[in-house]
């Protein structure tokens, strides 16, 4: 990060942001990872609605949901709320 730091002449005025947050990955905060059982999943789309981090996305092309582990912080809300128990939280690296 340090090498990216710019001087006052090179940044927009007034503190206007110049990077999208999507370039900042929060996935490495995670200790538990949600893993979906595709056989159980009914694609009810509850989990994308209640994910605080937009880390569960609906892929229109494949008609399926996708976990974005670049951003998933591993809170476990999706697994806890899944009405058909299709998501399990698994320890990272286990």
């Amino acid at each position: 990060m340090r090498d990216e730091q710019k001087g006052w002449k090179d940044i927009p005025i007034a503190g206007v942001c110049w990077k999208p947050a999507t370039e900042y990955h929060t996935g490495d905060w995670r200790t538990f990872k949600p893993v979906r059982d595709q056989a159980k999943c009914t694609k009810c789309l509850l989990c994308p609605m209640i994910c605080p981090d937009t880390a569960i996305k609906w892929n229109k092309a494949t008609e399926d949901i996708e976990f974005d582990y670049n951003f998933c912080k591993g809170c476990g809300i999706c697994a806890h709320e899944c009405p058909v128990d299709a998501i399990k939280m698994v320890r990272e690296g286990a």
Binding site: Q5, K6, W8, I11, I13, G15
Partner: peptide, 10 residues
């Protein structure tokens, strides 16, 4: 601390 100072310098 990484950019506030630069904004004040501006």
């Amino acid at each position: 601390f990484d950019y506030y100072f630069e904004h004040k310098r501006q």
